[in-house]
Every structure is written in structure tokens, then in C-alpha cells.
Design a protein around this nucleic acid. Structure first.
Lengths: 202, 202
DNA sequence: TAATTTATGTATTGATCAATACATAAATGA
DNA sequence: TCATTTATGTATTGATCAATACATAAATTA
């Protein structure tokens, strides 16, 4: 069945990628519709026809971010053979990802709308839900490692997952403050140096 | 010399404290003048007469935050007798400070304006300057510990300071996401468990 | 008391925001 | 060809923002 009506004059996914860039760099509130439409190369009626609203556009941009920039960091967590490798991968991949653009930008999920009572609470809570999901992903991986015998039974999986999640969040702030790749890799080194004492039977 | 003209009808510092609370919770952009004046109990002409502008009010609120909420965290760094005690104090005091209100709020310096190209770049850079100052404070304390013989000569003071600074920043995000005091204290525990391996002569 | 100075309350300003009205363009189906 | 459907461009809407104009109130100085 062919599409009825005048065909869309722009690439929807390319426009979404541009919108993601703007939201990533400027945050939700500071990304004005004028800036978005300029970056996307369309006018506001086209934006609203294709995406619905600024909030809906952000939600799609967030999903696009997770699928692209975020997948290289989080997807290998379950496939790597040890929890230690998985955690180390998250930290080192984060250090590289946060410093692969001209200007370091950190994580869109952490920085795009940090105030829970900001202008759009539903966006803030959606971002928070996603951050919590990442932490839970680490905690599940640690529990699996306990089940598999890699880690001792009394491992504090919740505390360790929260710790590494905290380090990963902090790297976003450091990246925004201009930290170099070497500095962020050094942060990952320091964080991983706690591994043995954190997972010691005792 | 007595003050000329009609005396101010409100307590300037109390109003500033109220403004700080609003900026702290809502961030610079989302804190509207209406919300600020309502919280401060004054009308906008009084605000502008007393503080100059929204930006100037924020700068004063930031200084007030540093002097009040921040001093308990950072002031003891130089007076504590070991670098280890100093770093531990920063982390544990942060965990307590970030969870002493009804709703966890994290650090105003980290969360009030996270986008460097936000609506007010001068505020973002001022906040960044302050974050960098805190990291430098840790690094200086570590270097002093090397000079005093507490830590070995080849200690990576810059990397260690960046690491603990990163953890402290990450705790702001966790606090905003509702982390409990126990969870943040656990993060501090995990971070401090890296101390021995980070400062081992090797 | 009269002149001066500073603060306050009410109302308003121009700018910017997200979102939309409306006419027109470009496709398909009959 | 002609009706229908969808997209686009121009222009505009009401809301909200930070900041201010202006008249009045409350103090000091002369």
C-alpha cells in the first residue's frame, strides 16, 4: 500500500539525530524550538506533524540516544564472561564515549534535565527511571556472578552497583567540565582498583 | 552614619537564604522570578533594588551556599591530620549533607546549571570554576601528604583527586534520584576501600 | 516643617517561548 | 482530470519570562 498524500520532505531519523544532539548539548529546557528546527532543517509545523510535541520529540531522542550512544556501554554487560570485566567495560567505555566529540558532553541521560521538579517532571522522572535501570543492570550482573561462583556469597551487590553507578554519573560532570580521555580513564582505573577489596570474601 | 531614606522592609540575608533554596531545588533556569519573589516574601522591584538581577542574585546565593552548606564538607580538609581522613571526611560528610532534608537535593554547585552552553554561560562557568576548585583542594591535600611522608613519592595525586571528586559529583545525581543516607554512606565506604591500593608505594 | 533619599506595590514592558491557523504544494486514488 | 490526503511555509497566537515605570510610603537631614 503506497503512502497517501504529499511525501515527507526530510529524513525523519536524520532529523531525530540532530534533535538528539541539541538536547544532549543544551538540555531539555534550553533547547528552544527555534534551535531544534534550525538544526533539524525543518519548520515547526513539520516538527509537530512528525513528532507531536517538544516533549514527545525529546522522548524519541532519548530512546535514540540509548540505542546509539548508550548501547556500546551497556549492551556487553550481560555477555561479558565475568562481572569484573562487565563493570570495567562500562567504566572504560564510558571514559572513551564521553571524550569522543570535539567538546566533551557526558551523558544525556544524566545531564539533560537534572532537577526532578524542573519544567517537565515527566521527562525528569523518565530519565531517572533510566538511570535506575542502568544501576539495576549492574546489580543483576553482580548477583549472577555470585550465583556462578565468581563472587562470594556475602558480596554487597547493591552497594557495589550503586558505587560504580555513582562513579559513572560523576564522569558526566567531569566530562562537561572538560576532563580529558586520560583523566576519565584514570578515574576508571581508580574505581577498578577497589574491586578486589570490594569482592573479598571476608 | 545612619541610613538615609526609607529602611528596607525585609531581612536581606533571610531572603537570600530563601532564594538559595529555590535555586538549589529548581536550578537557575527553572527558578522563575515569580517563584523567587514568592519564596522571598518580596516584590520584584525590591529584589532588583537589593540584588541587581536574577544572575547577581544567583551568584550571591551560590556564595551563601558555599559558606553554609558547603563549609562543613570542605573546610576540614586542610585541618585534618591525614589526607586519608580528609578525603574520607569529604565523602561521609557529603553523604550526610545530601540526605539531611526532606527530599534529597544533592549539591547546588553540581546541579544548578549543568549545561555549559545553557541559558547563562557565565553562571555555568562560575559553577565549573568552583567544582574545579574543590578538586584542586583535594589534590593539594594529597600533595601535602606526600611532602609530609604520609603517602609515597610516586602517588598519582591528580588522578586520585579526580577520582574522589568524581565520586562526590556522582553522589549528587544519586541524591536527586532518591538515594538514602545508608546508600550514600555505602558509596563512600566503597570509594574509601580503594584507598590502600591507590596509595600503595608499588 | 520642608526637602531629600530610599524602599515598596501595582501595573506594565518587550522578548521569547511552545504551539497552531491557514493557505498552498505535492503526492495518490478514482 | 479531479477529489482526497498529507506535508510545507508564512505568519501568528496566548503564555510566560526577566526587568522596569511610576506613584506612593517612610525614613533622614536641614
Amino acid at each position: 500500500m503506497a503512502a497517501r498524500g504529499r511525501p515527507r520532505g526530510f529524513d525523519r531519523e536524520a532529523a531525530l539525530a540532530r534533535a538528539m544532539e541539541v538536547f544532549w548539548e543544551r538540555g531539555f529546557d534550553n533547547a528552544s524550538l527555534g534551535e531544534l528546527t534550525r538544526a533539524m532543517g525543518i519548520n515547526s509545523p513539520s516538527l509537530y506533524a512528525a513528532f507531536g510535541s517538544k516533549e514527545a520529540l525529546f522522548q524519541e531522542a532519548m530512546a535514540f540516544y540509548v540505542k546509539t550512544a548508550g548501547s556500546g556501554i551497556w549492551e556487553p554487560v550481560d555477555s561479558l564472561t565475568t562481572a569484573r570485566d562487565a563493570i570495567a567495560h562500562v567504566l572504560y567505555a564510558t571514559a572513551r564515549a564521553f571524550t569522543c566529540h570535539d567538546q566533551s558532553r557526558g551523558c544525556m541521560i544524566v545531564l539533560a534535565s537534572p532537577q526532578p521538579r524542573g519544567s517537565n517532571p515527566s521527562i525528569s522522572s523518565e530519565l531517572e527511571r533510566h538511570r535506575r535501570g542502568n544501576r539495576d543492570c549492574l546489580e543483576r550482573r553482580l548477583r549472577r556472578a555470585v550465583d556462578e561462583g565468581e563472587l562470594p556469597e556475602n558480596t554487597h551487590c547493591h552497594a557495589i552497583a550503586t558505587f560504580y553507578s555513582t562513579v559513572q554519573h560523576g564522569m558526566s560532570i567531569q566530562a562537561r567540565d572538560g576532563a580529558s580521555r586520560e583523566e576519565l580513564l584514570g578515574v576508571a582505573d581508580c574505581a577498578m582498583s577497589a574491586w578486589d577489596s570490594l569482592t573479598r570474601p571476608n
